[in-house]
Computed example of a mutant assay.
Amino acid sequence: MANVYSERCPAREVLDRIADRWTVLVLGALADGPLRYGELRRRVEGVSEKMLTQTLRSLERDGLVVRHADEETPPAVDYALTELGASLEAPMAAVRGWAEQRIVEVQEAREAYDDRQGLPDLSA
């Protein structure tokens, strides 16, 4: 049985993948249905082409996303969640929702920490 607290547990790689910020955002963007690469890049603001490509390849390798290329010229490529990827949507939505709901508290905690440490205010 897998135990992510064990140093050699292969599930740690999966945990690393699903804990990645671009993974969380890409899976969320694909939850509403397949998207072309350009649509996905516009939806996930701030992701570079390199990071989006790397993330999509990793998700495809892990069986969470499927890439479908139409035989057109130029080829139209869509990305969609697999059944396995779709099974992550509820936990990922919970994490995204928590981040959106609790950001003010996190920012306040950061400011209080920085004040205690005598660190400059970096929020400006």
Rank of each mutant, 00 (worst) to 15 (best):
Q107E: 14
A31P: 00
L88H: 02
L52Q: 03
V65E: 00
S87L: 09
V24Y: 05
E71N: 07
Q101G: 09
T53K: 07
R42C: 10
S87Q: 04
P120S: 12
I103M: 07
T23G: 05
A19T: 05
V47Q: 04
E89H: 12
E39D: 08
A80K: 02
V104E: 13
P74D: 03
V24R: 03
G63S: 13
R12D: 03
E111Y: 05
M1R: 08
G118M: 10
P74Q: 03
R17C: 09
E60K: 09
R110Q: 15
A19K: 05
L59Q: 02
G97E: 05
R36T: 03
E89I: 11
E83N: 10
G46H: 02
R17M: 07
M51C: 00
D114W: 07
R96S: 10
E111A: 13
A99G: 12
E49C: 12
D115C: 14
L52F: 06
Q117C: 15
L59T: 01
L15Y: 03
A90E: 00
A11H: 05
E7R: 07
D114S: 15
L30Y: 01
V66A: 10
D114R: 15
E100F: 11
L40K: 01
D70M: 12
D32Y: 10
L40D: 04
L122V: 13
P120G: 10
I103A: 13
A29M: 01
E108V: 12
L119D: 02
D16V: 08
R96V: 09
L88E: 01
R110C: 12
M51A: 13
R102Y: 14
R102M: 15
A69G: 00
Y113E: 06
G118F: 07
L30K: 01
Q107Y: 12
H68Q: 12
E111H: 12
Q101H: 14
G33N: 05
S6R: 09
D32C: 10
E105T: 12
H68N: 09
R41C: 01
E13P: 04
I103K: 04
N3S: 05
V24F: 12
A93R: 01
A124Y: 13
V104H: 10
Y79L: 08
A11N: 07
Y5A: 08
Y37V: 00
T82R: 00
G46V: 06
R67I: 08
L88R: 02
T53S: 11
Q101D: 15
A69R: 00
R102T: 14
V14G: 06
V44T: 01
